[in-house]
């Protein structure tokens, strides 16, 4: 079926089988390969993209469900030579080893920091009505949908902590 996807500010028409996941549409049909396919079942988060400003798993949704939607992938967050502050923090804090989960980690963290700005609580927030600062425990809980099999979690947390403007604990 014919749809239009707005990806990183550009219009991309697509005529694809209804079975095509948003992730496969990006990677295999449109050449936007930043989002990675890990588990393909919503368990690892490496395919995380922002759709209409919210982080989702691109593997667990159909491209045809997103006709007209605004999609931001890692390519839309920053580019070589013009890294976003979060990308820069990942580099300086060594927030990866193999790097496969990194595009998903960064897109997820961008969406997560917007959720924090909007005052959303998490399951480790002491006060549901007034969640406090973004502690390391809060970062880990809110990022639990992104796995890193290299185990770079401490540095991922450090990069996000810095980009979110929080002090070292």
């Amino acid at each position: 079926m014919r749809i239009m996807l707005h990806i990183n500010g550009e219009e991309h028409p697509l005529d694809a089988d209804p079975r095509t996941s948003l992730l496969d549409a990006l990677r295999n049909h449109l050449g936007v390969t930043g989002a990675k396919k890990g588990c393909d079942h919503g368990q690892c988060g490496s395919c995380t993209v922002l759709v209409n400003g919210r982080r989702i798993n691109a593997c667990l949704t159909l491209a045809c469900m997103h006709d007209g939607d605004e999609i931001v992938t890692i390519e839309g967050i920053g580019r070589p030579g013009a890294l976003s502050p979060l990308q820069d923090a990942f580099v300086r804090h060594d927030g990866y080893q193999c790097g496969y989960c990194t595009p998903g980690q960064i897109c997820s963290a961008v969406g997560m920091m917007e959720e924090v700005k909007a005052g959303w609580p998490s399951s480790v927030s002491d006060n549901l009505e007034a969640p406090g600062k973004l502690t390391d425990q809060e970062i880990s809980e809110r990022m639990s949908g992104n796995l890193c099999r290299c185990g770079a979690y401490p540095n991922i947390v450090a990069a996000i902590r810095e980009a979110a403007g929080e002090q070292t604990e």
Partner: peptide, 11 residues
């Protein structure tokens, strides 16, 4: 908030 992940809860 105890269920799934941030990405899944958004969907």
């Amino acid at each position: 908030l105890a269920g799934a992940s941030g990405q899944l809860r958004n969907k």
